[in-house]
Write a protein that binds this DNA or RNA. Structure first.
Length: 479
RNA sequence: GGCGCGGUACCCAAGUGGUUAAGGGAACGGUCUGCAAAAUCGUCAUUCGCCGGUUCGAGUCCGGCUCGCGCCUCCA
């Protein structure tokens, strides 16, 4: 099986063939940095992080993800905060990067900013004017969609139909109501750059055309983003880029589904969004990442506290299993027979699943069997050599798969400690007091005073503490 | 109105036309345990929104209906 990618342009999965053998150029639309990132952003960048990690196994990947750091919303927000737009944008870039780091999203190869590409943008707009695809009016420049016959192809819509719906504001300056701005004349107090059309700034879509051409090529392999960018953002990018270059902008268009709240799209306008930061105050970042990957990237995912809590419980199980495994595992060969023959096929199965349009949900499902087997071996040892070899093979496979998912690569003990300490803090539990009670219970148990031991355990339970007895002693954790 | 996506068990969720419809959670039962917890094993959808069609065979393809969501305006 070769890699198949669902291409929005084709409306179906297509076998992936890079333009240049062994290399992949991918551009993903980055955030407009005017506020804290929310879970919807987390989904896009976790999804494409995972996709790129997987692609890197097979290709040399050039991953470009931009920052849109000048735009109407940034200007508006800066005004509200009485802050320079550039300063505000930089602040939210830093916050975004902190969130991404928490989520294990690796930086792209390049993270270009619009304000560093004004020259390229102006050049591109000039080319479009020269070719007749764009026209200046009073310091603005518009793209003329009638000069681009395939306009609407990505979003599968006809210009006539869109006009019928006509929520488009009629602007007499435009030749056609659907024409969109490439360059906007600066209003007083707005940030501006000099241009042949006067002082102004780039329109919303042109930056991605300019930056993808500069940092990848006029034609590259994959362009991605959230589903809401299909129209008009990506449609307009195609129009601008292809009108200028005469080449296909991207060979594959990938779009991820929305994050929903109560089955409605999470969005600023509905005011039903959660920032990454507030979610991470309640839950571990690995739990959020795990949750996002348990649904296929193209499907909608319903976000709720309960679902992330469940994800966190599962993450805890997974890391506990890893911790147990790591405490027992020994050095030695991994080749040979295993307790279960399928252990040897784990990575191949993983690849086959990821090759089918990056089905992380199935990957995670398939991994369950591996984790169960780890615990089974630890609880019920059989042949010593076979068991040891099987554990090593499992650990290797889990690490390899996890390095693509962005899971299981942290030290399990560190993750478990992180989970536990936040729960303790939330519940206001003092570890020393817990230890004292556990010691008291141990004494009671030694004296076979089980009534007393159970009373202590109930006391701990009331604090939210659950204890586990084992031959090595008693451990505890937050419920 | 136009276009697109989806409806799989109590909940989440995967599913390339073909033996018994992944996996997780919950629930119930067994093992382990002084009892628990954790772990593990087992049970848990004759059925995939509804109706019709194609096919030797359909959750998977086609048509209709229905419900939900999204895009068409800034949005990841």
């Amino acid at each position: 099986m070769t890699l198949h990618i669902y291409d929005t342009m084709a409306g179906q999965k297509r076998p992936f063939t890079p333009l240049e053998p062994g290399k992949v150029g991918i551009y993903v639309c980055g955030p407009t940095v005017y506020d804290m990132s929310h879970v919807g952003h987390a989904r896009v960048y976790v999804a494409f992080d995972t996709i790129v990690r997987y692609l890197r196994r097979k290709f040399t990947v050039n991953y470009v993800r931009n920052y849109t750091d000048v735009d109407d919303k940034i200007i508006k927000r800066a005004r509200e905060h009485n802050e320079e737009p550039g300063v505000l944008a930089q602040r939210f870039i830093s916050e975004f990067e902190a969130d991404m780091q928490s989520l294990g999203v690796a930086p792209a190869n390049l993270q270009p900013r619009v304000t560093d590409h004004i020259k390229e943008i102006v050049d591109l707009v000039e080319r479009l004017i020269k070719s007749g695809a764009a026209y200046p009016v009073d310091g603005d420049v518009y793209f003329s969609i009638e000069k681009f016959p395939t306009y609407g192809r990505l979003g599968r819509r006809r210009i006539d139909d869109m006009e019928a719906g006509a929520r488009v504001e009629v602007d007499m300056k435009k030749h056609h109501p659907m024409d969109f701005a490439l360059w906007k004349a600066a209003k007083p107090g707005e940030p501006f750059w000099d241009s042949p059309w006067g002082k102004g700034r780039p329109g919303w879509h042109i930056e991605c055309s300019a930056m993808s051409a500069k940092h990848l090529a006029e034609s590259f392999d994959i362009h991605g983003g959230g589903k809401d960018l299909i129209f008009p953002h990506h449609e307009n990018e195609i129009a601008q880029s292809e009108a200028a270059s005469g080449k296909t902008l991207a060979n594959y268009w990938m779009h991820n589904g929305f994050v929903n709240i109560d089955n409605e799209k999470m969005s600023k306008s509905l005011d039903n969004f959660f920032t990454v930061r507030e979610v991470l105050e309640k839950f571990d970042a690995q739990a959020l990442r795990y949750f996002l990957l348990t649904t296929h990237y193209r499907s909608p995912i319903n976000f709720s506290d309960q679902s992330v809590r469940e994800a966190e419980a599962r993450v805890k199980y997974l890391y506990e299993t890893l911790a147990r495994m790591d405490a027992t595992i020994t050095d030695g060969p991994t080749a040979g027979t295993y307790r279960e023959a399928w252990v040897g096929d784990l990575v191949a199965g993983f690849e086959a699943t990821m090759d089918d349009d990056f089905n992380t949900a199935k990957v995670i499902g398939d991994l369950s069997e591996a984790f169960s087997l780890v615990n089974d071996i630890l609880d019920h040892p059989k042949d010593k050599d076979t068991d040891a070899r099987t554990l090593r093979a499992l650990r290797t496979a889990i690490t390899e798969i996890g390095s693509v998912l962005g899971l299981f690569t942290d030290n399990p003990a560190v993750v478990l400690e992180r989970l536990s300490s936040r729960r303790q803090k939330d519940a206001g539990v003092d570890p020393l007091a817990v230890e004292d009670l556990i010691a008291e219970r141990a004494a009671a148990r030694k004296a076979k005073d089980f009534a007393r031991a159970d009373a202590v355990r109930n006391e701990l339970a009331a604090m939210g503490v659950v204890i586990k007895d084992s031959p090595q002693g008693t451990t505890w954790e937050m419920a």
